[in-house]
């Protein structure tokens, strides 16, 4: 099993994909931290109308440090899609299953390696965000580590990226065409699903569903606040419930993908 995981990691690190993604994750982490740090500390946002803006130093720091993670998880989602999609596209899946015909183990190795990669990219994103964000926050007189719960948010950030990669893994199997899988999963995760969340929040029955959408669960997990159309902070789950919901999405998607892979004829 460790051999299979090592092979999966070698696959990821022997094409040019990984360092392009690494740069994007690092830069977006830093850029969003700087942006959010300036915006949330500006007078306009701190005024009485801006109910959704983080009020405490700790909440502010969490919002700043995790600001780049939405881009980050879209990127690891794409990595998850490509981990399996490119194997089918370039028919390397044949070599993969020849080396390890127990396909469940191959999929397990992919799951483990994606969690590892998610954590590595998480470290990069946080390095950028904490580095740049701390400078700006400190200059604005905000204490970047006011509260110990900030460490929990940072730790869970590493998991978030891995879990989204697993959602991508499932999408990459369920949508056989790699390009379509990439476009559909990124479009859904980036645009459709957040909009759906906002629209659902307008209705009474939708209000109780929207916290369980993946992006809302992610915000809940990171304890970063977000606002609805009315500018009021939306109701979200507690951090641990958010984490469980996102894990459930990852497990269902990766599980469906594995189930399909076990039965497929590789021609």
């Amino acid at each position: 099993m460790t051999a299979a995981v090592r092979a999966e990691l070698r696959k990821l690190f022997t094409t040019r994909l990984w360092w392009g993604m690494a740069i994007a994750v690092l830069v977006s982490g830093a850029a969003f931290a700087v942006l959010f740090a300036f915006v949330f500390t500006s007078d306009a946002v701190r005024g009485p109308q801006a109910a959704a803006a983080p009020r405490t130093d700790a909440a502010l720091a969490k919002a700043v440090f995790t600001g780049g993670l939405q881009v980050g998880y879209l990127l690891t989602l794409a990595i998850g899609v490509m981990t399996i999609g490119s194997e089918y596209r370039h028919q390397t899946i044949t070599a993969t299953f020849l080396a390890l015909p127990r396909r469940g183990r191959v999929m397990a190795a992919k799951v483990v390696s994606l969690l590892v990669v998610g954590a590595l990219y998480g470290v990069l994103s946080l390095a950028g965000a904490v580095g740049a964000g701390t400078v700006v926050l400190t200059s604005k007189g905000v204490a970047p580590f006011a509260d110990t719960s900030i460490w929990r948010t940072l730790a869970l950030s590493l998991l978030v990226l891995g879990l989204w990669a697993l959602i991508g893994l499932g999408a990459g199997i369920l949508i056989p065409n790699q390009v379509a899988a990439l476009l559909i999963s990124v479009a859904v995760a980036w645009i459709v699903e957040p909009l759906l969340g906002l629209v659902l929040a307008l209705t009474d029955w939708g209000k109780s569903i929207s916290p369980y959408l993946p992006s809302r669960a992610t915000s809940a997990m990171l304890e970063s606040t977000s606002s609805g159309f009315d500018g009021q902070p939306v109701h979200q789950l507690s951090w641990w419930a958010g984490a469980l919901v996102l894990m459930a999405y990852a497990a269902v998607m990766a599980g469906l993908g594995t189930w399909r892979t076990l039965r497929a004829d590789i021609t």
């Binding site: 696959k11 022997t14 094409t15 994909l17 490119s86 370039h90 028919q91 390397t92 044949t94 070599a95």
Partner: peptide
């Protein structure tokens, strides 16, 4: 098949 290599690897 002779084609099953990732072109970027």
């Amino acid at each position: 098949e002779a084609t099953n290599f990732h072109p970027g690897r």
